[in-house]
Simulated scan of single mutants.
Amino acid sequence: MSHLLSAAGLRVTFPGRRGAPAARAVDGVDLDIGAGEIVALVGESGCGKTTLARTLLGLVTPTAGRVTFAGEPLAYKAAALKAYRKRVQLVLQDPSGSLNPRHTVYDAVAEGLRIHGYAGDEREAVAGALARAGLRPPERFFLRYPHELSGGQRQRVVIAGALVLGPELIVADEPVASLDASVRGEILALLLRLRDELGLSALVVTHDLGLAWNIADRVAVMYLGRIVETGPVETVLTSPQHPYTRALLSVLPESPLPPVVLRGEPPDPARIPGGCRFHARCQVLASGEAAAVADRCRGEELPVLGGGAVAQVACHWSAGARPAEVTAAW
């Protein structure tokens, strides 16, 4: 599979206040997204996944590393970023906050066309985007306002606004988190249909591994600024190798794993611990099961995982000391 978007050695730091250490929000990430591939970026709040997504969109300039799209490095000049954002679109979590309450559905979807100086038939383009997003007949929605729509319809309008420019990749940040459970499946099915019909690629940012299971081809699990496990979704979610991934999976209702309650809060990204960055909260290390590699966990840095499709894990225990059994498939 050819890579549509790639990040290599990506780092994003934010200066601390009053001489405090800089916060390492993204601390060495390699990530590839193939043409027509859906990748789920999963992790707790504060792990850096939204900062990583914003960096891939060109909204944040990386401190180090590079982003390439279709083989070309991303340039951080206004004209280059404007052209790039026509090809890579953002779908935000809260459709109510994404839509101007004073704009009709037509104007909300047409906004991108007007920003980019679209020279074709605007009405036809807006109608086509609304229809692809599942709002049919589209003309029935042109003059409606956001408050006249259901939550699912508003999210479809946001998706239509992203589709109207014909992007090759969308970045969806918690795309169903604010929706009722009955509507979430419809929006996920829509994203899958758009991938199949348009060849659209997607990076779906979420805290929910259950969502990743339903929509993604590949999953990347992020903790404290770095990807700690990645691979095909079936591989990672049926046989999780990293204790953090196992903890995230254990709280899902359908999980075969015993529930794991992680101790404490994630460390401050300005004071990332040495060794494995998860070791202070690791349930395997705390139980003594990882005693053979305990010193390495606390003191030996783990390498940055590659961004490709091969299953990989950044964990001393999984690399050598873990027993051979695997988790039962769901």
Rank of each mutant, 00 (worst) to 15 (best):
H242Q: 05
P256Q: 15
L59S: 10
R18D: 05
Y76V: 08
E122W: 13
W213F: 12
E122G: 08
L248E: 03
L191P: 00
S2Y: 00
A202I: 12
L211W: 00
D32H: 02
A78W: 09
D30P: 06
P273V: 13
S98G: 03
L179C: 09
L92F: 15
L92I: 05
F69Y: 14
A35Q: 07
V326H: 12
T13N: 07
R18Y: 02
L209G: 08
F278Q: 00
A172K: 09
C276H: 08
L59C: 03
R322K: 12
P240N: 08
M222N: 06
A321R: 02
L302F: 03
E139A: 15
A108R: 00
A22P: 10
T245F: 11
Y118F: 13
R218Y: 14
T230L: 06
K77Q: 14
V228W: 06
G9E: 08
T13R: 15
P253Y: 11
A247Q: 08
G275A: 00
E139I: 12
V293K: 01
R281W: 12
P323S: 06
F141E: 08
G9V: 07
I38G: 00
G65T: 04
S250E: 11
G71T: 09
A328F: 09
A172D: 13
L130M: 02
R296M: 10
K82M: 12
V91Y: 05
L262W: 11
A64I: 10
Y118R: 04
E44D: 11
V12K: 11
A8I: 04
S2D: 10
G9T: 04
V176K: 02
H116D: 04
P258R: 03
G97P: 00
V251Y: 05
L257S: 08
S178R: 15
F14N: 14
R218W: 14
I159S: 03
D121Q: 09
R102Q: 10
T13F: 06
S287P: 08
R136I: 06
R218E: 15
A20P: 01
R11G: 07
V310E: 13
D32F: 01
S96G: 08
V219A: 09
Y223R: 06
Y145F: 15
G46W: 07
L56P: 05
R11N: 13
A20L: 09
G128C: 04
V171M: 13
V26H: 00
L135D: 02
D295E: 06
R18P: 04
T238V: 02
V29L: 15
Q153L: 04
L257E: 07
G43V: 00
T51I: 10
